[in-house]
Structures are given as structure tokens and as C-alpha cells.
């Protein structure tokens, strides 16, 4: 049976679970957003390099 009433200990129990959820949420969001940001940056720089090195073959497959 699910027991979600910690009685007089609620003032300690819920902050513990709340802070855990916040910190874990921060870990997930920070990890994913950082990975996404750097992946996009690599894609942007690779596209820029391709255009600089082979501007005349921009729409053709790269060697």
C-alpha cells in the first residue's frame, strides 16, 4: 500500500526528495544540453570548413 503521508516527518522527508529530484534533474539537463551544444558547434564548424575549402563544390558530395 502506497504511504505518502509521512506525518510529522514531512518537513524533512519531502525536501530531501525534492532536492534529490532537482539535483538529478540538473545533472540530466546540463549533460544533455552541453552535449547538444557541442555537437551543433562541431556541425557548424565542419560546414564552415567545407565551404571554405571547397566553395565551388558546395552542393556536391565531399571527397
Amino acid at each position: 500500500m502506497l504511504d505518502l503521508d509521512p506525518g510529522k516527518y514531512g518537513a524533512f522527508l519531502w525536501p530531501a526528495f525534492g532536492i534529490s529530484a532537482l539535483v538529478i534533474g540538473w545533472m540530466v539537463v546540463d549533460s544533455l544540453s552541453s552535449a547538444r551544444r557541442w555537437r551543433k558547434e562541431v556541425q557548424r564548424l565542419e560546414a564552415l570548413r567545407s565551404e571554405t575549402l571547397w566553395p565551388e563544390t558546395k552542393d556536391q558530395p565531399r571527397p
Binding site: S31, A35, E41, V42
Partner: peptide
């Protein structure tokens, strides 16, 4: 995920 981020 974070190691991938570091590689990128």
C-alpha cells in the same frame, strides 16, 4: 553523454 560532449 558527458564524455561524448567532451569529445565534441
Amino acid at each position: 553523454v558527458r564524455v561524448r560532449s567532451e569529445v565534441w
